[in-house]
Amino acid sequence: MNEGAHPPDWREQSLNRLYRQLSGDRWYDAEAGPVVRPYAMTRGRTRSATDALFDLVSLVQTLNRTARPEVMLSPEHRLLLQHCRQPLAVADLSASTNLPLGVIRVLLGDLYGEGLIHVTRPVPPAQLPGEDILREVLNGLRAL
C-alpha cells in the first residue's frame, strides 16, 4: 500500500461518520418534537376511498360509538376523534392538529369507514336557491 493510501472501504466509513455527525443520531429536535413522515401515518396511502367526501369545508363530528376490538386506532386517529367531538371543518381540523390536509383526508376516510364519524357536506352551489327566489322570500318577509 502506498503511503497516504486509504483502505478500500475508507469512503464508506467517512460517509457513515459524516452522516452520524450531521444527524447527531437524533430523530427529532426539541422544537419540532418527534418526526414522523406523513406516509408513515397513512401507511403509504395518498388517498382514501372516500376522499371526495372530505371537502375543505365539510363538517366532521365524532359519533358516540366505540371502535370494534379488532380495529387498531393510531394516535393520529384518536387525536382526530378527540378534536371532532364538536363539528369541525376539515380545513380547521388540519390546522388545529398541525397535520397535512392529505393525511387528514386519509385518516378521516379510515374513521368514516369504521363508522366512527359523521360528515356533513356543504350544499353544492347548483342546488342553492336562486337569487330571484331569495328576493321573493325577502319581499314576503317585509310584507308581514
Rank of each mutant, 00 (worst) to 15 (best):
A52Y: 00
L53R: 14
L53D: 05
L53Q: 09
L53Y: 04
L53F: 03
F54Q: 00
F54T: 00
F54K: 00
L56H: 03
V57Y: 07
V57T: 11
V57H: 10
V57A: 08
S58A: 15
S58M: 09
L59H: 06
Q61H: 00
Q61G: 00
Q61I: 01
T62K: 11
T62M: 03
T62Q: 07
T62N: 00
L63S: 08
L63N: 07
L63D: 05
L63I: 09
N64D: 12
N64Q: 12
N64W: 01
R65Y: 04
R65N: 06
R65W: 02
R65K: 11
T66R: 14
T66A: 10
R68G: 13
R68C: 09
P69H: 07
P69M: 03
P69K: 09
E70N: 14
V71Q: 15
V71R: 15
V71P: 07
M72H: 14
M72Q: 14
M72Y: 13
L73V: 14
L73H: 14
L73F: 13
P75V: 12
P75W: 14
P75M: 11
P75D: 15
P75F: 13
P75A: 13
E76R: 11
H77D: 13
H77Q: 08
H77N: 12
H77P: 04
R78T: 11
L79R: 11
L80G: 02
L81K: 04
L81A: 02
Q82G: 02
Q82F: 08
Q82I: 02
H83C: 12
H83S: 10
C84Q: 09
C84E: 06
C84F: 09
R85T: 04
Q86S: 10
Q86H: 08
P87Y: 05
L88A: 10
L88F: 05
L88T: 14
L88I: 15
A89S: 15
A89D: 05
A89Y: 06
A89P: 04
A89C: 08
A89T: 13
V90M: 07
V90Q: 06
A91C: 12
A91R: 15
D92S: 15
D92K: 12
D92A: 13
L93R: 08
L93Q: 05
